[in-house]
Design a protein around this nucleic acid. Structure first.
Lengths: 245, 245
DNA sequence: GGTTTACGTTGACACAGATCAAAGCTGACC
DNA sequence: GGTCAGCTTTGATCTGTGTCAACGTAAACC
């Protein structure tokens, strides 16, 4: 379990967790310098995923989880009859594959929405290192727990919000995550289609499109295809708290 | 961390994990006899929760997770405007409180729907024992992962299914979980109201009630208040796979 | 550089489920 | 054992979103 550092080639070292600019968002969060060095041993494989390619598919055997280094993904579940439910959109620093631990098989598909790169974290190795590095163990538990809480948020979206509330919540969530990564809170390009947004939000693509148009008419945002500019953050937030019904 | 067994009183021993009839469903699943003994040290506190009482509320500090020994719970999130989203119903052998790990605070409410008893599992102790007992560590990861997968199932319910499909999926899920606990797969009492079912399924209570009545008219089930008898399991399943639209 | 293809917008209309309303049932409590 | 409160059922009507259809837009490809 130790001494692997010696075998790393220079390009791999350059990409080590301890050097990664996502280390305060991703798995290494909160680790000491020494512990981060141990993590470098654990995470020594990266994979490029081109736009449209899968990291894994529902039914695939589970062996590793994946940390997104660059790029953008969606996860979805497909029903036999062709219906699709997008279960999430993931960006740099977020972890993919947690669904596979319970059954040793993945239960959803993970697809790159743009050319991406992920760090491969073999799961049994992660469990081994977790036993030695308490901070890693605890942080991993936090990551899983936050995923559960995020899912509860999606349930609220789907269960009790109306179309415009759902879309406003979606935009504000993206904005907040882009901000955390040092990008503009108010201006970004959507990586997903209207259809994918709709699937995530439990709406049809026409409804998503109409809601975008309405937000634009009301001066809350501007939309040009996939380019979004938020003009009135407070206005979007008001949509969420103000209940007219 | 060792030697605590000596301090256990007789009634506590009687309730130890190693003696619990839920041990093959609950946290001890798959542990050796020796490991189960260690778990008995970890889980030595039980709490009675009367119908209507909370184990924890949204915002409460997080210290422990809870294994349900007997009884039935719901978890929900309340919006400021009074809207409620039920995020799950939990029964014996299932774990409550995983939502609190990520932020050190609970993010939902856990309410007993009947008089219940839970085993208190102090979370930092669980992490300590997990570092020593690999099987416990791994099983705990599986529990969290399955919760994520379950949440994806709820998203599918809410995102792409119509009212009758949602209710059929709900009944089949309850049936399957009752079966796993040795109860009848086809006859049971609902512990929750129509309103709570509706909140979970993203429907209004009237819609739930109408769907029950429709199922009864079609000979799929009988309903008398909270008592449900499933007459045609295959018929309910067909509702889920057969897509007319 | 013109054509193809995928994606997006907008309008007209339909419908599943929400809302509003009234009455029935059941168990708890005095 | 009668009353009360909470829950459930059912009917009538309304409405937000889905569905269907036509057209627009933009990037991709020969």
């Amino acid at each position: 379990m130790h001494g692997k550092l010696a075998h790393l080639s220079v390009p791999q070292l350059r990409e080590a967790c301890s050097q990664c600019n996502l280390r305060e968002l991703c798995l290494p969060m909160g680790l000491s310098e020494h512990e981060m060095g141990q993590l470098d041993e654990l995470v020594n494989l990266r994979r490029r995923i081109l736009r449209g390619q899968h990291i894994y598919r529902s039914g695939d055997g589970f062996e590793a989880i994946f940390a997104i280094k660059t790029g953008f993904f969606k996860t979805d579940v497909l029903l036999e009859d062709g219906r699709e439910q997008v279960t999430g959109f993931q960006m740099a620093g977020e972890i993919l594959g947690l669904d596979g631990i319970g059954t040793e098989r993945h239960t959803c598909n993970a697809v790159a929405l743009e050319d991406s790169e992920v760090c491969v974290i073999p799961f049994s190795d992660l469990e081994n290192y977790s036993r030695e590095i308490g901070a890693l163990q605890h942080h991993f538990h936090k990551v899983m727990s936050r995923e559960i809480v995020r899912d509860h948020g999606v349930m609220m979206l789907l269960g009790i919000m109306r179309a415009e509330e759902r879309l406003a919540a979606f935009l504000l969530n993206l904005s907040q995550r882009f901000t955390a990564r040092g990008y503009s809170p108010t201006e970004f390009n959507l990586r997903m289609t209207r259809n994918e947004i709709g699937s995530y939000l439990g709406l049809k693509l026409e409804t998503v499109s109409r809601a975008f148009s309405r937000f634009q008419d009301e001066g809350l945002i501007t939309v040009h295809q996939k380019h979004i500019q938020i003009l009135d953050v407070a206005g979007l937030k008001k949509l969420l708290t103000e209940r007219r019904a």
